[in-house]
Design a protein around this nucleic acid. Structure first.
Length: 379
DNA sequence: TTAGGGTTAG
């Protein structure tokens, strides 16, 4: 069912159909389907309809249990509409089972929206319902204070967790360490790593990937490499994000050989994605390495990774800056032919360069292409 | 069914 939900009008048609369905459902509509419908509606700003879908669950023989409730809460809160999630929570809390996740979704939503008082109020409400705040609840608050760079408050929450006997986990430590690294407090970030180890909490691939990132950004390439080697010894497999971080760091240093070696090596354990290729492509444009660029495009094709609008933009701009205008034009054309609309700034940059280089014919071609696309769909 | 990173510019 979900697979044929389709996009745009097709989705609306399916949603109308589901709405008009009655007890003839016969199990075609499952909670998973309804979860996706609610998410899709919330994403389109159709909050009331998402709530309506939840209200109608009984009709399909789908139980309105805590899991169903959380799917609705998550759909609404994820789409930057924690207020709507809370409204729905108030409507259903007395007639639907709740669990700790229901509250954690709301707490995280309030924290991400910067509405701390509401987050605290929801935490109190959670306690009244007999749930004890867990590591996820506290981590949402830590994330909020990290975003605010209020590390004194972050420490306070760590202390509170200790008092309550709630152990931070790899996610909690990743958030704190990453934020300190971003705030250029690299030593404090490394202290978090030390504390984590002394607490007996095992780092995972995502944690290592963050650690490698902040070390690289701080220019501590040797340390980053050591961590990359060390994680294997600790029994944690590098994943696509670890490799992407390492590749991106090598590219920033223009270390082409190292970057390509990593790309080759990662294929033994995981598949590169668009984010892996982006820094490589950027480096090739900058260094005018057209043969390597070509190699990468073939590599991407082989790995079934197709170029998105952001990557086309990167290519067009990168090639413009390196004076490879013919190639820039052909990527621009390819982008448009795939139905993507270039940003005005990218278009202007290309036209300006073509002008400077007296490439009148190519300029006309680009202008003609641009006049055929709808500007409101700019990406 | 809940929490974790850069990623198009600069």
């Amino acid at each position: 069912m979900v697979d044929i939900l389709g996009k745009g009008k097709k989705f609306d048609l399916m949603w109308d159909l589901v709405r008009e369905m009655d007890d003839l459902n016969d199990g075609y509509v499952t909670l998973a389907t309804m979860g996706k419908i609610m998410r899709r509606l919330a994403r389109g700003g159709r909050y009331d309809e998402a709530v309506e879908a939840f209200r109608g669950l009984d009709k399909f023989g789908v139980t309105r249990d805590a899991m169903a409730m959380n799917l609705l809460m998550d759909a609404l809160a994820k789409e930057k509409s924690v207020e709507h999630a809370y409204e729905a929570f108030c409507e259903f809390k007395d007639c639907t089972p709740l669990n700790i996740r229901t509250f954690n979704i709301l707490i995280d939503g309030w924290c991400k929206a910067g509405k701390l008082e509401n987050a605290e109020r929801t935490m109190d409400e959670m306690k009244k319902h007999g749930f004890v705040p867990d590591v996820v609840s506290y981590t949402s608050f830590i994330e909020h204070y990290c975003r605010e760079k209020d590390f004194r408050k972050v420490d306070e929450i760590f202390k509170e967790m200790q008092e309550k006997g709630c152990k931070p986990n790899a996610v909690t430590y990743t958030i704190a360490m990453h934020a300190l690294g971003k705030a250029k407090q690299i030593n404090e970030a490394l202290e978090v790593y030390a504390k984590m180890k002394s607490d007996g909490c095992l780092p995972d691939a995502k944690f290592y990937s963050s650690l490698i990132f902040i070390l690289s950004k701080a220019g501590r390439i040797k340390d980053a490499n050591e961590i990359f080697e060390d994680m294997k010894k600790q029994g944690v497999m590098s994943d696509v994000s670890t490799y992407t971080t390492m590749i991106s760091s090598a590219c920033e240093l223009s270390q082409e050989e190292d970057a390509l070696k990593l790309l080759r090596k990662m294929e033994d354990s995981c598949k590169p994605n668009l984010k892996t290729y982006a820094p490589l492509l950027k480096m090739c444009c900058k260094k005018r390495r057209m043969k390597v660029l070509n190699f990468l495009l073939i590599h991407m094709f082989r790995n079934d990774v197709s170029i998105d609008a952001g990557t086309y933009t990167l290519l067009v701009r990168g090639l413009c800056m390196s004076g490879k205008l013919e190639l820039a034009c052909s990527f621009f054309e390819e982008m448009v032919s795939k139905g993507m609309v270039p940003m005005n700034a990218t278009y202007k940059m290309l036209v300006e360069e073509l002008n400077k280089n007296c490439m009148g014919e190519a300029k006309e071609q680009i202008e003609k292409l641009m006049s055929q696309v709808k500007p409101q769909e700019s990406v």
